[in-house]
């Protein structure tokens, strides 16, 4: 253990479904952002800080949209729960019985860049059962708790009578689809430490494995093209736009300051500006409205792959399967046909 004599772990509670925190029926934290879901990125952040293991708590209602993980980790467990506060309490109880003294509790709807070790030592020195992270805009859904003492806290007490730890680094709350776009934009222009998956083919242009770009398509940096996505001729991807996994951008379409979420097909000669598209749903940030497009020639979901394990009973453990649904980012993509060769494309760096 890195943190001296104390043993600790952390667990995440995925967001509850609500009108703002979900998009196209999926929680924002479970949507892929630049190749990985926010949940996966947060889990990765904790493993990089050498925590012992991570438990992901998700509501049963969201079992269909559990995030897929690109890299397997045995120290990750996923639990489904009907009553999230109760599940948190039980998990704390379980940790305490197993001799785990301290635990991070983080919402999946939060991206925060902070020194977790420093946060932990701050908590230990404060001699309080709970320490909560705050930033300049207020409290954040991130705590360090003493598992033995915090078991006595119910939901209300959990958010008060705590010690505050100020995070001065980059913080983004994912309360609204616009926050997702903001985070993608910040990541692509380098305002935060988050980096897209795949390789940086040209400065500011990130191409993930298996992506295909027609030589007549134009990608203006910064931009991200996800795994297995296709950008057809005369398409234009510009102004911090991201095309996630398994998407198709058809001929002549312009994607400007927009994000196309995984498994989405965008038709020919369209213009997506300041928007997020997911399947047949379009969220226009400019107009502040979500539109369901019934016309498949405009937007339609690609053949979707089921990532999540089926819903089980309350607090039943679902182990992450060993095989990944998609190749890892470290694998090199297979040689493409000449038409799709990257070097021949009109990419503006």
């Amino acid at each position: 253990m890195v943190f001296g004599a104390d043993r600790e772990c952390e667990f995440l509670s995925a967001p509850r479904p609500s009108t703002q925190e979900t998009f196209s029926g999926q929680p924002l934290a479970c949507l892929e952002v630049l190749g990985r879901t926010m949940v996966e990125r947060t889990v990765q952040q904790f493993f990089q800080a050498d925590v012992e293991f991570v438990t992901l708590l998700a509501p049963v209602a969201l079992s269909h949209s559990l995030p897929s993980f690109r890299e397997r980790n045995r120290a990750l467990k996923v639990k489904l729960a009907n009553d999230m506060p109760l599940a948190i309490g039980r998990t704390l109880n379980e940790y305490s019985r197993n001799g785990i003294d301290n635990c991070f509790v983080v919402s999946g709807n939060l991206y925060a860049e902070t020194d977790l070790l420093d946060f932990f030592f701050f908590h230990r020195e404060a001699m309080r059962p709970v320490s909560r992270a705050v930033d300049h805009d207020g409290p954040l859904d991130m705590w360090v708790v003493d598992t033995a003492k915090a078991m006595r806290f119910d939901g209300d007490q959990f958010s008060k009578d705590v010690n505050s730890y100020l995070i001065g680094g980059y913080v983004r709350r994912l309360d609204h689809p616009a926050d997702l776009r903001g985070l993608i934009n910040d990541a692509l222009v380098g305002r935060c430490a988050m980096r897209p998956s795949g390789r940086e083919a040209k400065p500011g242009i990130w191409i993930d494995s298996g992506a295909g770009i027609d030589r007549r398509a134009r990608i203006v940096s910064p931009a991200y093209i996800g795994r297995g996505s296709r950008v057809h001729e005369d398409a234009l991807i510009t102004r911090s736009s991201s095309i996630e996994r398994n998407c198709r951008i058809d001929c002549g379409t312009v994607i400007e300051d927009s994000s196309i979420l995984a498994n989405t097909s965008v038709g020919i000669w369209l213009d997506l500006r300041h928007a997020i598209a997911c399947g047949d749903k379009l969220f226009s940030l400019a107009h502040g409205v979500a539109v369901e497009i019934s016309d498949p020639s405009l937007l339609q979901p690609m053949a979707n792959v089921v990532h999540a394990a089926p819903a089980r009973g309350n607090l039943e453990v679902i182990e992450i399967e060993e095989e990944n649904l998609f190749p890892l980012s470290t694998q090199e993509e297979a040689p493409a046909r000449p038409k799709w060769q990257l070097g021949a494309n009109l990419i503006q760096g």
Partner: peptide
Amino acid sequence: VSPACAALLELMR
């Protein structure tokens, strides 16, 4: 024009 229709008009240029 409602915002939803405006978004669609914009999408189709």
